[in-house]
Design a protein around this nucleic acid. Sequence first.
DNA 1: CGATTATATGGAGCGCCGTTCCGCTTATCA
DNA 2: TGATAAGCGGAACGGCGCTCCATATAATCG
Lengths: 199, 199
Amino acid sequence: MGQDSSEEAPSRPLRADARRNVDALVAAAKAVFATSGVDAPVREIAAKAGVGLGTLYRHFPRRSDLVTAVFRHEVDACADEAPVLAAECEPAEALERWLYRCVDFVATKRGLAAALHSGDPAFDALPAYFERRFRPALAALLESAAAAGAIPADLDAMELLQAVSGLCYATDADRPDQARRMVALLVDGLRYRAAERPR
Amino acid sequence: MGQDSSEEAPSRPLRADARRNVDALVAAAKAVFATSGVDAPVREIAAKAGVGLGTLYRHFPRRSDLVTAVFRHEVDACADEAPVLAAECEPAEALERWLYRCVDFVATKRGLAAALHSGDPAFDALPAYFERRFRPALAALLESAAAAGAIPADLDAMELLQAVSGLCYATDADRPDQARRMVALLVDGLRYRAAERPR
DNA sequence: CGATTATATGGAGCGCCGTTCCGCTTATCA
DNA sequence: TGATAAGCGGAACGGCGCTCCATATAATCG
């Protein structure tokens, strides 16, 4: 699917060195965010990328733009796995496994969920992108599982998605299985309802 | 249960002016947090209380101590409702209703959950206090419900608590019923398991 | 009621943060 | 190759949490 950078207008091509620096910055940011969290100092990222602060701010006028850039890559990677799982598993199984995949996604990117809900208007575009990629992915999985009678059909995809995100966010970083257990509990809740109120 | 203030050691009584300043600081912090959120500058609180920074830091060595002080009584109020509900409802019903009560609590104090899980070691004292008050409250409810066979017995209270907190946190502020629906789903997950694997 | 002393105070100052600004460098192209 | 626009680095700025200590004052005692 479209991995265009989606923020560079086609106005003019970047100069070669600029292009190189942008890539280095995104790579450095991804690494630093993974190590030190999204609150890591901007200077650290610039240093790791081997560029000056001016360069960083030329390409990412705000700190949050860097976060957004990294976030989009990860979102794409995760969303694209949904159809893969759907093709190789039973519907309910695919649903559960993709949710686990989301757990890993959020867990390793701790603080991203925090940014999403920080109320900071700088991140306003982020939930929209998240929703645009994830909602269809999950909706397809839910539909299949509902058609198979494994879960009820009245569940809103975004609602479940936000729940999973919250579950991961609230979970201890040093107990990675905890979030999975809670998600499993959520899915069992769906199964309970499917059994109680079969179509 | 012990509602000692837990930071005034009984070593010596505070001097009169100090006592007055502590009260002024807590009142100012409560007002400022409500207006500008928990991330409001410390200086703003000190100014509103009419004291110097040194005074503020003497009584609340870390910013989070102020946050803790302000929210402490809210936590107590919520925790103290657990035994009340336990006395007037069926075990599973009491559990579910108290979790809803937690939802309301977290929903109104949005920034607090963020602070709790910010990963910032400065807020380490906060989760400790929440755990001290909430874990026993919830553990009692879980035990009763498990004894009645309504839910399985192998659930960790803190784990469930964190899950609920995360659910509330991830939820849209303008859709207050969403978190309740997700908590209900979680509880149904417990019912499912009790039915599948009765003791 | 002073005098004494432990206690409390206030705010300048420190180091770190995100962000801005601008003189210098360099890729690009006729 | 020289002109020019695009890009670059890092000093500097204001704001933050927090520390430090000279000063002020409530409590205590003769």
